[in-house]
Design a binder for these strands. Structure first.
Lengths: 375, 375
DNA sequence: CCCAAGGATGTTTACGCAAACATCCGACCG
DNA sequence: CGGTCGGATGTTTGCGTAAACATCCTTGGG
């Protein structure tokens, strides 16, 4: 079957003869020249250019030691045949694929997506391709499965965008030469980690709110199993403790706007609550809706700060004060780190933090008079 | 340089002797066994298991003709050596990479991301990996560049998520056996296209609004260069014309919430305007804010319908009535289509549409009494 | 004028795998 | 009991490339 199919496609490959397009034709043609022959090889170019394959290789790789004259001839032959180096052969020979694998749980969070995009762009700039490995469910088994698939995959390095405690037992089978960089993790002692400075960002948010006069700051946290959420929560606690403020009970969401709404229903009922730090913008959005529906005005009655600065944040009602994450930079650093590790130029482990920047919009204001402040 | 580096990495590959980790060690070890030797080969497994390489291959590929006894031995040897098939060699031999390339412009639109995710998941299920090719700027040159990189890349097929008029001249250099499927295009006559049924969705939205009693429906369109936007606009026109309604002037945005806000400022000033169909949810969000700021209540004064049904849409103020796109299905069909094309089982071209579903929330209602309706 | 040096080019080989073909052996048939 | 068949396994070969080595030719110095 495949013989015939490919022969039909053959645009006049140097060696193969075209042989009609009848599917049933009992083709005596060499079977081996199946798919691969749809494209010209170095040998074909060499033949046409009247040189050796090695010379073609030299031209192809921009190596020196080729006359300008010869080079031109070879290039012409390449063009005529539509020659493209076969990356499989190249990879086999060179022992590297110039590809980075990215394992990510979900693409439904802005952060993951933006980071992925930045990684892809940075990688492309370095001449690397990015292979995506989605993990359907964030279980150990699934992660291990992804790694397992990755092992057979053509990658030189791996970047993991995920809560890392799922990683621990999973990496063991990775080929030793594959380097790993992790986003969103506290495993800086075992891997190279690049992340946003959750702590600094959170601290800025809390201080901003306290600075406006709020007695304390409530926190709408992300899911427990997320390191980012965990660190934001820890930092929130630390900032409040440090300032000697009361620690309100934690309200937990799951990153989704819907969960923010549910949490908001609780918070709206708390008279005391004049300032909320939401662990991401989506939850802040839900929170805004809940507060609105319960007649709590933002920012007059309640101030809200988000985290991420998604593009839509400036169009919320009201436009959301939030922490801007520089995902592009995170992605860029990930690629740099992993390439450095591959070249054995960088450190084996350690954490790099990218600062978050507080973006002031209209969802924060001093607390209402006679509100919590006056107590 | 690389010799030493790699030697240091070698964890005791079957053949190579470990030799300290001193970087400067003048290693007399075989140079050729550089990186590749960090992993065991079929031959190593064969040696350890006391069988031929071919038998290892058979086990590795699950071929028949191997005794259970032998198979177990081979598997044990594989495990002991941590054997992983070398995908480059495999690809070279088989002439296929089991990888699908995805070219996409930006990952900043929900649709692209969700589609990509679905593609990755479907591909994984079929045993295919997905290589991501971001195009920084949507120019012909950039697209051509992406295709060009793709040619040297290890992919068997390509899925393009992009406005297709940038494609036309760009595909010419693609290796003939690489199949292409396009999302969001009207080039069904040249490619296989999978897309959401923009027309049907839009029609449902317009009819819904007209059904509520609105005299006509305004349209907040997406950017001109987007096929999806164009089709939504066309369908909106058609639906209104068909119903014999007046065609209000087109208001154009660029998909962003910010542009929706700007457009909303205009629309808020139009007394006449009681119903708006926004070409996506983000613009609808901006629109909601603008209307709110100008005292136009939604849905009492103005009804708004979006497109996409992003997760946040249910948390807008008010929760947004919108058209749900089944991106997962689109992605799945893309993968199916491209695999079918590869296997020459499917049609060479043609368009597959995935229906959009109107999700009723709280942003639509009958027009205000004495409003546009009464005129 | 001859030979060494060095640049241009060609030849050989191996990367790891799997298709094609070859071989071996036991079982079953007449 | 010889032959044959078929399953299990081994051997050969080539995929396209690029490193290492070999060869050729030109050039320039002694």
């Amino acid at each position: 079957m495949e013989t015939v199919d490919d022969a039909a496609v053959d645009p006049g490959g140097p060696a193969a003869a075209t042989e009609g397009d009848g599917r049933g034709t009992a083709a005596p043609a060499p079977r081996r020249r199946a798919r691969a022959r749809a494209t010209a090889s170095m040998a074909d170019v060499a033949r046409l250019a009247g040189v050796s394959a090695q010379t073609v290789s030299r031209v192809s790789n921009g190596y020196p030691g080729v006359t300008e004259e010869t080079r031109r001839q070879v290039l012409a032959a390449m063009k005529e045949l539509g020659y493209r180096p076969n990356s499989a052969a190249r990879a086999l020979k060179r022992g590297e694929f110039r590809t980075i694998g990215v394992i990510t749980f979900t693409l439904s969070t802005t952060g993951n997506v933006r980071t992925l995009e930045a990684i892809a762009n940075s990688a492309a700039r370095e001449g690397y391709a990015v292979t995506l490995l989605p993990v359907a469910v964030p279980t150990q088994d699934e992660v291990r499965g992804a790694f397992s698939r990755l092992e057979e995959l053509a990658v030189d390095a791996v970047i993991v965008i995920m809560e890392v405690h799922l990683l621990d037992a999973a990496t063991v089978h990775l080929p030793p030469h594959v380097q790993v960089v992790v986003v969103d993790s506290d495993a800086g002692d075992r891997y190279t980690v690049v992340d946003t400075d959750q702590h600094g960002g959170t601290r800025a948010a809390v201080r901003h709110l306290l600075g406006l006069g709020h007695r304390t700051v409530w926190h709408l946290a992300g899911p427990e199993d997320s390191f980012a959420a965990q660190r934001r929560t820890d930092a929130w606690r630390a900032a409040l403790t440090e300032a000697g403020r009361e620690l309100p009970p934690l309200v937990r969401g799951d990153w989704s706007a819907e969960s923010g709404y549910r949490a908001g229903l609780e918070l709206a009922a708390v008279e005391d609550c004049t300032a909320v730090f939401a662990a991401n913008d989506q939850m802040a959005l839900g929170l805004l809706r809940a507060l609105h529906e319960h007649g709590r005005r933002v920012p007059e009655d309640v101030s809200v700060v988000g985290f991420d600065d998604i593009p839509e944040a400036s169009s919320f009602l009201p436009p959301l004060t939030t922490l801007h994450q520089d995902f592009a930079e995170v992605g860029r650093l990930c690629v740099q780190a992993v390439l450095r590790k591959m070249r054995q130029e960088g450190p084996e482990r350690g954490t790099t933090l990218v600062p978050a920047r507080l973006v002031l919009r209209q969802s924060t204001a001093p607390p209402p008079e006679g509100g919590a402040e006056g107590r």
